[in-house]
Simulated scan of single mutants.
Amino acid sequence: MAGPHRRVIPREELTAWERWELGGIDEERRARQPAMPVVPAPVPPVVVEPEPLIPAEPERMPVETLPMAEVSLPTAEEIEAIEQQAMREGFDAGLEAGRLTAEDEIGRLKNVLQSLENVTAGAERELAESVLDLALVLARELVRQEVAADRKLLLPAIVEALSGIPPASGTSRLYLHPDDLSALEPMLAIELSGEHWRLIADPRLSAGDARIETASTQIDLALSARWSTLLRVLNRAGRDELNWDAPVSPQDGAASGG
C-alpha cells in the first residue's frame, strides 16, 4: 500500500526510464534475425549553375594627405632676368640657324656658279672652235681668189724660200704653173742667177703652186702643202671640210659673200 508520502511521477518528467511493454513472438524473432541492409533510393544529380563572375573592384589605396609645400613666387627682378635669358637663348639659336641656312645657300650658289662657269667655258671653247673653222674657210677662199686674180702674190713666198737655202752650187730648178711663170719670169730673172737656175713651166701644178729643187734641197711651195702645215699647227689636221681642195659649202659661200 502506498503511504501518504508516495509521489506519482508524471510522464513529462520521465527521462531515462521508459515504459516496458511485452511484445509479440514475431517481433522477438525478427529481432534475433540479422537486419537487412537498407539500400537508399538513388538521388538525382543536382546541376549547379555557375555563378556569374563579378569583376573585383580595384583595391583602393588610402590617399595619404601630403602636407602642402609652401610656393615661393619669383620676384620682378627674377622674372626680368628669366626673360632676358630666354631672349638671349632665342637670339643665339636663331643666329645659329640663320648661319647654317646661309652656309647652305652659299654652298648651293657656289655649285650653281661653278656649273655656269663650266657651261660658259665649254660654250666659249665651242664658239672659239667654230669661229676659227669659219675663219679658216674664209681665208682659204680669199687666198684662192687672190691668187687667181694676181699671180704676183706667189713671188714673196718664192723669195722667202730661196733665202732659207744655201747658195746653189749646181743646177737648180724652179717649177711654176705656166700662167704663173709668164707673170713672174721678169721679176724672177732679177732674183735668180741665170747660171745656176732654170725656170720650168709645169702644167701639172695648180695656180699659185711652186716647187724648188737643188742639189741638196727640195721645197714644195704648193698652196695645198702650205695649207696642210697651217692646219696641223692649229690642230685641224684630218678635217676634210677644211682641206685646201675641199668644195665650198653653201653656208661657207654665204658667209664669204659668194
Rank of each mutant, 00 (worst) to 15 (best):
G253K: 14
Q251P: 01
L205H: 07
A254Q: 15
Y175R: 14
T217W: 12
T217F: 13
D240L: 14
I219N: 01
I219Q: 07
D245N: 15
S228N: 08
P186G: 08
S182K: 07
L192V: 05
A237Y: 12
L221C: 11
R236M: 15
V248F: 06
A215S: 15
L184D: 04
E191F: 09
I190H: 05
L231S: 14
N243Y: 03
R232K: 13
L230V: 04
R236G: 07
W227F: 12
D180A: 00
A183P: 05
S206M: 10
W197D: 00
S224K: 08
D202P: 05
E213L: 08
S182T: 07
I219V: 12
L184K: 06
A246L: 02
A215P: 13
I200W: 03
L181Q: 11
S249D: 09
L199W: 05
H196N: 15
G170V: 03
S182F: 04
L184Y: 02
D202T: 03
V248G: 12
T171L: 13
L223T: 08
A237I: 10
R198G: 02
I190L: 05
L174T: 04
S206C: 07
E213R: 10
G194S: 07
E213V: 15
T229G: 06
W227R: 06
D220I: 01
P178W: 00
L192F: 00
S206N: 09
R198K: 12
T214F: 06
L181P: 07
A168K: 05
E213K: 09
P186W: 11
P186R: 11
Y175E: 12
I200K: 03
E241H: 05
N235R: 12
S206W: 04
P178C: 00
A201Q: 05
S216R: 05
L231Y: 12
L174P: 03
D240W: 01
S206L: 11
L176I: 02
N243T: 11
L205V: 10
V233T: 14
A201R: 06
R226D: 02
P247E: 05
A222C: 15
S249W: 11
S206Y: 01
W244Y: 13
L188C: 05
Y175N: 10
I212H: 04
D179C: 01
S193C: 00
A168E: 11
R226E: 15
I212V: 15
N235Y: 11
G253T: 09
S193T: 01
E213T: 03
G170L: 05
R239E: 15
T229N: 04
L234I: 13
A207E: 10
A255W: 00
A207H: 07
A201E: 04
D202Y: 01
L174G: 09
I200V: 14
L199I: 01
L221R: 10
